[in-house]
């Protein structure tokens, strides 16, 4: 089915068309969110949020951009919201532990292993993903969309609603910051 027809069908409440759309785009949405959140369960929950929002606000999609661009934008926004909520919870947990409300220290997994990385690069990619998490949000989004999702600068710019030059700048700074982070990591191992 043509994408435009499919969207029209979803807008008219066609459940089959919605199921087809989910089938087509679920891996794209999941991979983007997983790369940003670095947790499989969280990524699946947020992916559900994304499709629920798509279902509820499909009428707002006017076809001014590609459907995948719109979908990426929702996925990125939801991921950032989730990251912020998680950080707030973490800060609150630290305050709680300071005041002795909850002395249990929750251990999060140290390494995230992306299922799409080859076995030979598994350990190094885990170190890189840890460094990616330290990047500011704009750099993290640009790096994830370009390096992990394989999108062009133009596509990343459309999703982030910035110019191509800005994307280039984000990526340049992201690489510099990652180098710094990795240098600190490898020097600490010496």
């Amino acid at each position: 089915m043509n994408e435009q027809l499919q969207i029209q069908a979803i807008q008219n409440g066609d459940a089959k068309a919605f199921a087809q759309m989910v089938e087509t785009y679920q891996h794209l949405v999941y991979n983007t969110i997983l790369s940003m959140l670095q947790n499989k369960e969280d990524a699946e929950d947020v992916a559900q949020d994304v499709f629920v929002q798509v279902y509820e606000s499909i009428h707002q999609f006017k076809g001014e951009s590609k459907f995948s661009t719109w979908l990426y934008r929702i996925a990125v926004t939801k991921s950032l919201d989730y990251q912020r909520r998680k950080k707030r919870k973490k800060r609150f947990a630290i305050i709680e532990s300071l005041f002795g409300v909850n002395n249990e220290v929750k251990h999060e997994s140290i390494h995230f292993y992306h299922p799409g990385v080859s076995l030979a690069n598994k350990e190094q990619a885990a170190i890189l993903f840890k460094a990616i998490q330290q990047l500011p949000s704009n750099q993290q989004i640009a790096f994830t969309l370009n390096k992990i999702e394989g999108l062009s600068y133009q596509e990343v710019a459309e999703i982030m609603q910035v110019t191509v030059a800005s994307v280039e700048a984000f990526l340049h700074r992201a690489k510099q910051n990652l180098r710094k982070e990795l240098q600190q990591y490898y020097e600490s191992l010496k």
Partner: peptide, 19 residues
Amino acid sequence: DTLNSINDIQRAEMSPFFY
């Protein structure tokens, strides 16, 4: 090597019961 470790990364696939 670490920066290049994701050069051939494949897309992660969603669980089959997602829908």
